[in-house]
Each structure stands twice: as structure tokens, then as C-alpha cells.
């Protein structure tokens, strides 16, 4: 891809991704409310929240929070830009991990019990996510012979046919990364619960707004990662996204939060038995295809 096109795509991503992410969050809140026979907030509510937070007084537990949350946002954007410009998927995974490291460090910096527990739990979820993301990169490499996202579009056939196990593992990781029940271990999705929003407890005002926006970006990145499995089946992928979204909402509303141990066990078992097995079979039979 030439440089000019890359820059245009990057700028488009930076502008559109937060809109999509915010709208998704808005839909999520409205639909959740409907499931509980409530009316729910306006669909643009996430944007109102962020705008309000942006204008609050600057306050923090530790001045480094400001720069760490900025780093979280910037690296999340960078990771997304790498992805959408057809760049290297491994590098994107590393940038994503780096971004989360900054969020965790910001939570640590407060040295307060709630945010410390949140930070540890967030760290555990990063740890749980990492193997899946690396296996996705490895799987794509085995399919297309390259880590470049762009090369996946050249391959005949879609990732979903060759990598179904990996795709299922990714779905669970999305559930974890969106901090949805039953895997909302690091933040407690609802603010008044015992973790008091865990990892974000110590952030207020602008810092919290940055974390929120970064979260929208992350959502878009993860969903596009899932779409990548359907490179030649765009209509089908749109249907899949809607189905997955609905499932996610139902799961979120039906299940209570599980412990971090349960989270680790369930997701890693899926990763091992579906993800790794998928790659092993691909390694054995890949030659035949």
C-alpha cells in the first residue's frame, strides 16, 4: 500500500473509530435497558459522558496518571492505525499490550487498594489475552505466509474456514477485553459494586475520558480483528457481527461475574483445546490443502 493511501486510511480510522465505538456502547446501553424493560439513556449517552468528563476539574491521585492515560490512548490509536493500514499484526499485538501496560501502571500509581486490585485484575486479563492474540498472528502466518494484515486479503478462502478454533477463542477474548459479564473482573461493569470500577477508580475528569475513548478504539480494533476472519465473505461477516453482538449482550445480562481464576481457566482451556489444536491440525493437514 502506498504511503499516501496509508495516511488517508489512518486519518479516517482516527476519526471514524471513536464514533463507531461510542455508538456501539450507546446501543449496548439502550438494548441492555430494553432487556430489563427500561427505556434507557439516549443512544449518544457515551459521548455526553465523555464530554462532561472532559470539562471536569483536573484531579488525580498521582500526577503521572495524566501522562499514562495519554500513553494508553495514543498507543491504542497507534495499534489501530497499524492494523487498518494493513501493517504487521504482531506489531499491533505488541502495541496493544504496551497500551494496556500503561493503563495498568496508571492504576498502580495511585497506590490505593481498589485501584491496585483493579490493576492486578487488568494485568491478569492482559495475561489471558496475550497467548490468544499471538496464536491469531501465528494462525494468519500459517494461512498467508506473512504477518502483514494486507496479505490476508490476497489469500484464497477465508480465515474462518481454516481457523475456526482460533476464532472462537477470539470471541471469548473480546468478551473479556470489553469487560463484560461474566468477565468484568477488572472493573466491575456497574459502578457501585464492590470493586468500585477497579482499574479506573483513581481516574477522574479528563483522564477517565481518555480511558473511555481508548476503550472505544479497542472495541473497534477487536471487532475488525474478528472481521479479518471473513475476508471474502463480507455480507456473512456483517451477519456474524450482529449475531455475536446480540449474543454478547445476552451473555452480559444473564451471567454474573466469575472469579479471575475461573476466567483464566475457562479462557485458557478454550485457547488450548480449540486454538492450539486448530493450529496443530492446520500444521498437519495444511500441506494437503
Amino acid at each position: 500500500m502506498n504511503v499516501l493511501l496509508s495516511i488517508i486510511v489512518a486519518i479516517a480510522f482516527v476519526l471514524i473509530a471513536p464514533l463507531l465505538g461510542g455508538l456501539f456502547m450507546g446501543c449496548d446501553r439502550v438494548l441492555t435497558a430494553r432487556m430489563q424493560s427500561r427505556v434507557g439513556p439516549p443512544i449518544l449517552q457515551p459521548f455526553y459522558d465523555v464530554a462532561k468528563l472532559w470539562h471536569k476539574e483536573k484531579a488525580f491521585n498521582n500526577p503521572v496518571e495524566t501522562i499514562f492515560t495519554t500513553a494508553y490512548l495514543v498507543l491504542m490509536v497507534l495499534s489501530g492505525v497499524m492494523f487498518t493500514t494493513g501493517g504487521n499484526i504482531l506489531l499491533m499485538v505488541f502495541a496493544l499490550a504496551l497500551a494496556h501496560t500503561f493503563l495498568i501502571l496508571a492504576a498502580y500509581a495511585a497506590n490505593a487498594p481498589f485501584s491496585h486490585i483493579g490493576a492486578e485484575r487488568e494485568l491478569i486479563s492482559v495475561m489471558i489475552t496475550e497467548p490468544v492474540l499471538i496464536l491469531i498472528a501465528a494462525g494468519f502466518y500459517m494461512v498467508s505466509g506473512s504477518f502483514q494484515v494486507i496479505d490476508l486479503f490476497i489469500v484464497d478462502g477465508s480465515g474462518i474456514i481454516l481457523l475456526p478454533g482460533i476464532f472462537v477463542a477470539l470471541c471469548f477474548v473480546i468478551l473479556l477485553r470489553l469487560r463484560k459479564s461474566p468477565y468484568d473482573i477488572s472493573t466491575s461493569e456497574h459502578a457501585h459494586q464492590e470493586l468500585v470500577k477497579g482499574v479506573t477508580t483513581s481516574f477522574s475528569g479528563r483522564n477517565l475520558a481518555k480511558v473511555e475513548i481508548a476503550h472505544w478504539f479497542e472495541l473497534v480494533i477487536l471487532v475488525s480483528l474478528a472481521i479479518l476472519f471473513f475476508t471474502h465473505l463480507l455480507v456473512f461477516s456483517a451477519i456474524m457481527i450482529i449475531v455475536c453482538f446480540t449474543l454478547l449482550l445476552i451473555i452480559d445480562n444473564v451471567f454474573p461475574r466469575v472469579t479471575w481464576k475461573m476466567t483464566m481457566k475457562s479462557i485458557w482451556l478454550i485457547t488450548l483445546f480449540l486454538g492450539v489444536l486448530n493450529l496443530v491440525l492446520l500444521g498437519i493437514f495444511g500441506v494437503l490443502l
Binding site: 439513556p41 455526553y48 459502578a191 479506573t200 483513581s202
Partner: peptide, 16 residues
Amino acid sequence: YDVERFGIINTGNPAH
């Protein structure tokens, strides 16, 4: 009463 209609959220945290 569904106060979330007005964007109201019950936080447990003074920072928010």
C-alpha cells in the same frame, strides 16, 4: 423510575 433515561448513573466513587 429508570433514572438512566437522564444519563444518571450511581457510582460508588467520589472521583467520578
